[in-house]
Design a protein around this nucleic acid. Sequence first.
DNA 1: TTGTACGCGTTATCAT
DNA 2: ATGATAACGCGTACAA
Lengths: 341, 341
Amino acid sequence: MGRGQSPTPSVKDVARAAAVSLGTVSNVLNQPERVAPATRERVEQAMAELGFVRNESARSLRAGQTRTVAYVMLDAGNPFFTDVARGIETTAESAGLSLFLCNSDNRADREHAHLAHLEQQRVQGILITPVDPDSPELDALVRRRTPLVVVDRTRKGQSFCSVAVDDELGGRIAVEHLIDRGHRRVAFVGGPMSLGQVTDRYLGAQQAWAAAGLPPENLTLISCESLSVAEGRSAGERWAGLPSSRRPTAAFCANDLVALGLLQQATLAGVKVPDDLAIVGYDDIEFAAAAAVPLTSVRQPRSELGRTAAELVLDEAANPRHQHQQVTFTPELVARASTLT
Amino acid sequence: MGRGQSPTPSVKDVARAAAVSLGTVSNVLNQPERVAPATRERVEQAMAELGFVRNESARSLRAGQTRTVAYVMLDAGNPFFTDVARGIETTAESAGLSLFLCNSDNRADREHAHLAHLEQQRVQGILITPVDPDSPELDALVRRRTPLVVVDRTRKGQSFCSVAVDDELGGRIAVEHLIDRGHRRVAFVGGPMSLGQVTDRYLGAQQAWAAAGLPPENLTLISCESLSVAEGRSAGERWAGLPSSRRPTAAFCANDLVALGLLQQATLAGVKVPDDLAIVGYDDIEFAAAAAVPLTSVRQPRSELGRTAAELVLDEAANPRHQHQQVTFTPELVARASTLT
DNA sequence: TTGTACGCGTTATCAT
DNA sequence: ATGATAACGCGTACAA
């Protein structure tokens, strides 16, 4: 058992304890095969006894880079993003890197603080689902050469890689499905419109609606302040308040949280789903399938999103001839009881 | 606009560009008031032009510690833990520290890798919901003086702080509630029994059962391999397979994921909740209230759990006279439609 | 195979 | 108010 109280032992202390030189200790750590088995054993034992722990700050100061990538999540409470994170982790793990998760919780100030800190840490790369993909802060980061990949968002310019899913298409297939099921009055439930996701999905919905030759006024907008369960409930109340002649028979929600809120409110009020109201969500989170009335939803390939994003950031970090690219995945409708009779 | 391509500029480069000494630059960063406004301005402008970013590795090598705490989560996909994380973040943020989230995803090897990395990073403190609270690795960590707080788990010995909720009590109030509602055959749905949580909640259930003078054989155990939605569904099938004479009229599930799975399976099979089967969950995650049949659940004060844990770890990091303590919170039953007629 | 000297970027201590 | 210099712990040439 070690000396007990001494601060944290350094390689120097290990060297002294094992009666070898400092360089040898370093070799045991970094090129074990280069050191004689007997010596190595002695050094390793000394490390164990002293409770030696490598100082990563010193190591990365010397190396000029860390063994870490980070994902700044928009909302850690939304299973969609944790699934993306899991995909990232898969790739990071096999590349021998640690993944740190940061949660901006939809707040720009928090996002800013995290980015600053990560940049100072010299992480190998940053993955982010930003509060605002148009923020100039992202460009500044890129200009200072931190590999950056934007996840589940896009932007006109292309000063960085991005990985996203075709939200317009998602909106289209959702509404096409409802039209196929015979609905002629549909609500789009989502907001705020400042979110690219929301506007794209709404746009897709409108396209499908127009393509079917249906009157625009029969595609109602019920707007939310955020994509949360609570807002979904509130939307449900507003839906119920509409005059029955104009009340939509189906709702396409901008994400599953909203859809679950709507479903809950509907059930509470005795509205039958899908008979009185059919519901389509978006994201296909685990809880969508697990709802008491399983939710039809637009599935995004979340793990693949994460894996691809991680690959891109690693490429940018390692490959000097890296080219930025915008990868777009295709969403897919998963039909369940909430729209099927 | 800066030079363009040069690696990352250091304080040295800033000093040269601003025609001041290295120490002055450092003062601008750390004690701005000590440097003449004119000089400061010049230095700040040089930093901006060069795109200077402090190197946290160097800073913390010098300081001997970082400005970071970490939470190693057991399952980032479970909203319970993300809520705990949010509580931690509240405290960390007001202490000026960054929080890094790591996800062990229930795997001991991943947990080990994260812990090793964090220790090497010299984080100020580690919060963890461990795969196995009895793992000697935690003791080793503490012995090497990394402030450590175990969240939502406990252990006999007390070589570290821990913050938990009284799971026995939780089990008791859940089953008392069911007994009050008139149920005389109840299932406990949960597993594996290697989880302290599960055994404690089961124990509490048994206590309540015995206290009411009910025959032990009427408290059935339906065991799960993990606390997931899928296992809840499977439990539902097994419940349905029981002979109706012995089939419980109510189920107490070890967590909400299991309860939601059970609820889904029940609804699918046309079983009326709560009339044919009443359900109580545990954790009261947001999706519990949002289920189409809102779920009665045992609420744990998750944010407070996180906040308290963070306070403890900060105290251990800063206060030399820190005393380890085991904080226990009290759970609370939230009755909803899944048990109320 | 092992030992030694030097530098990484920052900060704190001194002297000016 | 500002400038010079020595640490912090580790990795790596290079010398032995």
